[in-house]
């Protein structure tokens, strides 16, 4: 091509090479050039504008280029969170179990003569007139019929009504037909805690057969008297909610709120042996 042999091209080529050589040499030797400084001065405002555009696009570019990485990171973090939630759940369960065992230990310390057999509630049969728990332990663990069961806070729950080799059934004090010899901790007034159909529906029971002049007030604690062969003396049955008078029998009775929170139980302690109370 003729153009590449023209003076114009040769001059342009020489100019380009000269510019490259001179400015590279100056830059390497540490001399700044006024031409470069001037050009930079002139282009700075426009550069700022284009840089602003670039910054505005930065987020979008990151969205495209970083998407896969962020997606992967997000999945990893989700897995980590799920793992942590599982850990938290396990820790909560362990803590609850630990608290339960600690309370049981306290009960054991309070009643040195008691022999306990802890048992988990593996089934709960809520009927219209009775509540039966199925425990995961039975005769092979020393559990037998008519053994009292208590909660971890020493509250009386009820007694074993039936026992198999590896299982047992228990009924609570609020069941109709249940009767426990009891007394008022404050006044020593004695009576029998019995299950009542209507009260049982609300999770309550009543202290009957009180003397008409018995000193009993709302808020009093009711304990087992130890009379009979099932329950040891001194177990907390519940607290008095209100005191009423039975016109037909001409006696007082008290509505009792069981101390053990029966509805939320997950494990109980079966008292397999204790020192019998002998009344003076």
């Amino acid at each position: 091509m003729k153009f590449f042999k023209s003076k114009f091209f040769i001059i342009t080529l020489i100019a380009a090479v000269s510019v490259a050589a001179v400015f590279t040499a100056m830059s390497l030797l540490g001399y700044s050039s006024y031409i470069k400084a001037g050009l930079n001065f002139l282009t700075v405002p426009v550069q700022k504008l284009s840089d602003a555009v670039g910054r505005a696009l930065d987020g979008y570019a990151s969205y495209i280029t970083e998407f896969d990485r962020l997606k992967k990171e997000n999945e990893e973090l989700k897995e980590q969170i799920n793992g942590m939630l599982d850990d938290i759940q396990s820790a909560k369960a362990v803590k609850e179990e630990n608290d339960e065992l600690c309370r049981m230990l306290e009960v054991k310390k309070e009643h040195l003569d008691y022999k306990f057999e802890p048992a988990d509630i593996i089934g709960r049969e809520d009927g219209n007139y009775m509540t039966v728990f199925t425990l995961g332990r039975g005769k092979s663990n020393g559990i037998d019929k008519d053994m009292p069961i208590i909660s971890s806070n020493s509250g009386l729950i009820g007694r074993i009504t039936d026992a198999g080799l590896t299982w047992s059934k228990a009924s609570s004090v609020v069941d109709v037909g249940s009767s426990v010899g009891a007394y008022d901790e404050r006044s020593r007034a004695s009576g029998i805690v019995v299950g009542d159909y209507e009260l049982g529906l609300r999770g309550l029971c009543k202290l009957s057969y009180l003397q008409s002049d018995a000193d009993i007030e709302a808020g009093d604690r009711i304990l087992t008297s130890g009379v009979g062969s099932v329950y040891p003396r001194g177990l907390i049955i519940g607290t008095v909610m209100e005191v009423k008078y039975d016109e037909s029998l001409r006696t007082k009775y008290a509505v009792i709120k069981p101390y053990a929170e029966i509805s939320g139980l997950t494990s109980v302690m079966v008292i397999t042996s204790y020192e019998r109370y002998v009344e003076d």
Binding site: V46, S50, G54, L57, A61
Partner: peptide, 12 residues
């Protein structure tokens, strides 16, 4: 200007 200011934000 794009090569100096915009594309540095759009690296591939």
């Amino acid at each position: 200007l794009m090569q100096c200011s915009v594309f540095p934000h759009l690296r591939f």
